[in-house]
Design a protein around this nucleic acid. Structure first.
Lengths: 338, 338
DNA sequence: GTGAAAGCGCTAACAA
DNA sequence: TTGTTAGCGCTTTCAC
């Protein structure tokens, strides 16, 4: 039994020995092949192949001081909106030769801290978090490690971390404005839990019922299709009738739509419906869902650039505001005058 | 300007010096606090705090030979079915103190190899891939690195990697069997691209039209809501009428449902509809979508255990077959006799 | 163009 | 209980 066989994995030294060169030369063919004579290089490359040598990332990292990955803490993987964000983030990060580690926080600040610690522990060079409401321990960790961290899905230039996101208040304002413009005065608002969720809170704050002379009824539910269904049931059972339903996310709107269909309530003939997000499903449902498009793909790319730049230059990036815009489809209609 | 200030990050030595102990002692308070006298430990912990010391994962990895993370290569993040899988995978991996790095392959074998290389390069201790059709270069990489790798969403005990997945053939067989049992003979089959997708191929192979005396028409489309819409249009325009539509995934079925609604075709009164996956949306759509439940959450957990065990014990795990089962909801109905 | 040797930050064996 | 020290696998001067 030779050395080659009982070792788990060949290292630089093994390759060097096998190729009859020094470790420095092997390192060179790995990192600066042009600095090595072709003939030598070939010898080394052949040894690399036969020994099935794969350089150790850890050893590399320890020298360069870099791990080349960033962590993303997302509240859920279940909502397609986050999937879209992560896809763009991962893709753009790759341009900076950075990998992405995803951690699910299940919307729980305590879990978020835990996972953030793990991320830091395994060497994350940067972090992407959602919103600006976090456990103080997280801020502490970020501070202690001086870890480049971007807060997404939110816009607040005064926040202690740079934010890359849209104006949540503007999003709901845009939506309510549209419904009011269509003549709706009695509107049901369906939203996710307010606890621990600054995005939902901000969307709430964006509503200006007085300015639109509107009467709003609020329905809190879990952000999921089922949550939408339940809210719709509650709306139908409520004493006060509404002419439109505004959902703080399209998932909710989809659930509402299904439940209304189940109750033979026609959209938009009997009830108008509007969402926020602009998911793929929203464009193709019947009727199409009028919604506010949240630029999450751009948010992913922008966040990637921001955190990569920060890591590279050590200079904190400026916050970026992405502007949401309305997508008009068939789900609402103007109320009949009189 | 002292040393403490112009260094980017304190290391073990800095802490040791500052606390007036040896590096070994600092290492001990990190890894085996009980082996250190409380008073000493306190001194060290205080130094750690003031110096904002965070241990280097790379240095740790180089000693233990471990990076404590595995990579998952998924074809897309857009389909909720993968999100569910990843959530379970990540969660279970954590029990083994392993992190998850997600890489999107966009269904492209070439991109898959590229990302796999990156993953290995950054030190992945194991890999999770989808299906059994891959670029030879991937198999080569896995082989060369002797990298614990699990192939998911597929079942094939003879495959060179252990598979953790369901029997795709059984899934469609189950579905067709149900529709045929309801008396359907003319059925449209809506499926994703066959190229590079063994899961779709296997689902195709699971169909036994002859055994069920059924006439099948096939409609290939992209796996997305829009793809389903398009397929539905094609089905409605086809010369030969069908009484039922079988979709190879619920996303497709949802698109089909929307398009049928748009064309005032009632489900199940005018046309029966069945899917495969069992997404959250499927349970709450109107009508509820009869489908084949794919146990992707269990697949995530099982894969996590399998790869973690393999990494730990160096022993290749056995393939695991997860059994899909039917979920009967309202979307299909029996054909009227005669 | 190539090699020798000094680390990178940490763990673990061994000594005290 | 604590300290000393030899590596882990690699990159990177600095000679030759």
């Amino acid at each position: 039994m030779t050395d080659d066989q009982n070792k788990k994995r060949a290292n630089l030294r093994d390759v060097a020995k096998s190729a009859g060169v020094s470790v420095a030369t092997v390192s060179r063919v790995l990192n600066a092949p042009d600095a090595v004579r072709p003939k030598t290089r070939e010898k080394v490359e052949s040894a690399i192949r036969t020994l099935r040598f794969v350089p150790s990332a850890a050893a590399r990292a320890i020298n360069s001081g870099r791990t080349r990955f960033v962590g993303a803490l997302v509240p859920t993987l279940d909502n397609a909106i986050f999937a879209r964000f992560l896809a763009a983030l991962e893709h753009k990060l790759l341009d900076h030769r950075l990998s992405l580690v995803v951690a699910n926080t299940y919307n729980d600040p305590a879990i978020e801290v835990e996972k953030a610690k793990t991320l830091v522990d395994v060497g994350a060079e940067g972090l992407i978090v959602s919103g600006i409401t976090h456990d103080p321990a997280l801020d502490d960790l970020i501070e202690r490690c001086q870890l480049p961290t971007i807060a997404t899905s939110y816009h607040d230039p005064s926040y202690h971390l740079p934010t890359v996101g849209y104006d949540n208040m503007a999003a709901t304002a845009l939506a309510l404005d549209y419904l009011a413009g269509q003549g709706h005065r009695d509107i049901a608002v369906v939203h996710g839990p307010l606890a621990n969720n600054d995005r939902t809170r901000a969307r709430m704050a964006g509503l200006d019922p007085v300015g639109h002379a509107a009467q709003l009824q609020f329905f809190e539910t879990e952000i999921a299709i089922l949550g939408g269904c339940r809210a719709a049931s509650a709306i139908l059972a409520a004493p006060r009738r509404v002419s439109a339903i505004l959902c703080f996310s399209d998932v909710l709107a989809l659930g509402v739509l299904f439940e209304l269909q189940r109750n033979a309530v026609r959209v938009p003939d009997d009830l108008s419906l509007m969402g926020i997000d602009d998911l793929a499903a929203s464009a193709h449902s019947e009727p199409g869902l009028t919604t506010v498009h949240l630029p999450v793909s751009r948010m992913g790319e922008t966040s990637a650039n921001a955190v990569a730049g920060w890591i590279e230059t050590q200079e904190r990036p400026a916050p970026v505001l992405l502007v949401p815009d309305r997508v008009i489809r068939g789900s609402p209609r103007a109320v009949e005058p009189g």
